[in-house]
Amino acid sequence: MKQRRKIRKQKAHIAFVLNGEPCEVAFAPHKTLLEVLREDLNLTGTKHGCELGECGTCAVLLDGKPVLSCLVLGLDAEGREVTTVEGMQLPEGRLHPLQETFADLGAAQCGYCTPGFLLTALELLAKNPKPTREEIAQALSGNLCRCTGYIKIYEAVELAAAHMRGEKAEVAEEVVYGLKS
């Protein structure tokens, strides 16, 4: 009875490519891409740490480039290609090499920052298949992780890069057992 709000259309309606598939969605026009993905499309794999563009947690790929989805308006995705962590898996449900190595080496502890790191690393490896540790650190410097100290993340990116180059890379013993001397 107190709900006297005038009922009228208030939502914007856009079409874009989401994880390789056509997608249409309606949402309040002030919403960020982060909110549209999580709230209007139920893709909760994309996380948020600050919603102010400070932590990299909400990174997704927009036309192949990493962006902070909390700083992009949903409307700006119109007609473009968005990739989220849900779109990383390979056919038949196989994990992407980055996902495999993050899982194997413990690069995902709490897993909250992981989607942002994965997508940022994905773009790095797309443009630089054999990055040095310094290049990896530079590329991931906008993503905060409070669990890992980044070391396992570097090792996972390096190993995935080798696998993606088709090399038969093995894990150094110290990476999973620690140093012996």
């Binding site: 893709l43 909760t44 794999g45 994309t46 996380k47 989220t84 962590v85 849900e86 990383m88 898996q89 994990l95 980055l98 996902q99 495999e100 993050f102 899982a103 194997d104 413990g106 995902a108 709490c110 897993g111 909250y112 992981t114 989607p115 994965l118």
Partner: peptide, 16 residues
């Protein structure tokens, strides 16, 4: 070994 929840975490399936 992997963590038992590792796959959920790298695919964004973990429900926070």
């Amino acid at each position: 070994f992997r963590k038992v929840d590792a796959s959920a975490k790298v695919t964004g399936q973990t429900k926070f």
